[in-house]
Computed example of a mutant assay.
Amino acid sequence: MAEKEGFAALVLRLRSNGVSNLDVLTAVEQTPRSQFVPPQFSADAYSSRTIPIDCGSFMEGADLAVRLLDGLHIKPGHRVLEVGTGSGFTAAVMGRLAERVITIDRYKTLVAQAQARMEALSLRNVIVRQADGASGLSGEGTFDRILVTAAFSAVPRFYADQLVAGGSIIAPLIIEGDQCMMVRLTKTGSRFEREDLFAAPYLPLVPHIAAYL
């Protein structure tokens, strides 16, 4: 019951922010968010507050997570790369929208937890892998969409080789000091068209996989 009420309240908040994509909202509804938050934060699963998880990482508030998913414009048949698995919630939702999702994280602990959640939800098209996401993921071909959940200090142009023509990436960009802007970069020829979406709180990208966690 709390799950349904939390989701209903989230939908009302999202609609007031102009998010009403039925495919995205249905995928979110089919992915119980309470299964992705630490038990002590279950009451906040559908709130807009940031929730701490293992390894010093955090989950975006539910509103922000869904706004990012909405902004990606994922279509059936798409291949998606996510850099920064975290709890696995956004990857799980994307798995219901796309043909295939590869999500990577530097922390073995988070990868193992996310993998268990995908198996519990029978999401076999979501691949969870421990990898250094500082330069994306080479050797896996190109992707239609890339979602990055750690902030860059400059537009990550190296991702252009990992996107199909017309593909897009959403990533947080540090614009000054600790201010962070979510931007959508769409590949047009050999360049990116940049669109600023909204300000958001994000941790800077840390290279290399974690040695101990």
Rank of each mutant, 00 (worst) to 15 (best):
H78L: 03
D161L: 14
A160Y: 01
M1Y: 06
G189L: 11
V24E: 03
V183E: 08
F158H: 15
L25T: 01
F198L: 15
L22M: 14
R157D: 08
I104D: 02
G189Q: 08
A2L: 07
A27L: 06
A8L: 07
D54N: 15
S122T: 12
Q162S: 05
A199P: 07
V28E: 02
L121K: 01
A65G: 08
R49W: 02
L69I: 02
T103I: 09
V83H: 03
M94V: 10
G56D: 01
R157A: 12
S135K: 08
I174P: 10
T26A: 12
I51C: 10
R124N: 13
F58C: 14
G95F: 01
G95S: 00
V66S: 07
A131M: 05
A2S: 13
F58I: 12
A112F: 14
R49I: 06
L123D: 07
E119T: 06
E3W: 03
A91H: 03
A91C: 04
L97D: 04
G141I: 04
P172S: 06
I174T: 15
I127K: 12
G77N: 05
R191A: 14
A2H: 08
F192N: 08
L197E: 10
F58E: 12
V28W: 00
R184F: 14
D23R: 13
S153P: 02
L173C: 00
R67I: 09
A2M: 12
V80N: 08
E193W: 13
D196G: 14
I74R: 05
I51F: 02
Q113K: 11
R49K: 05
S135E: 11
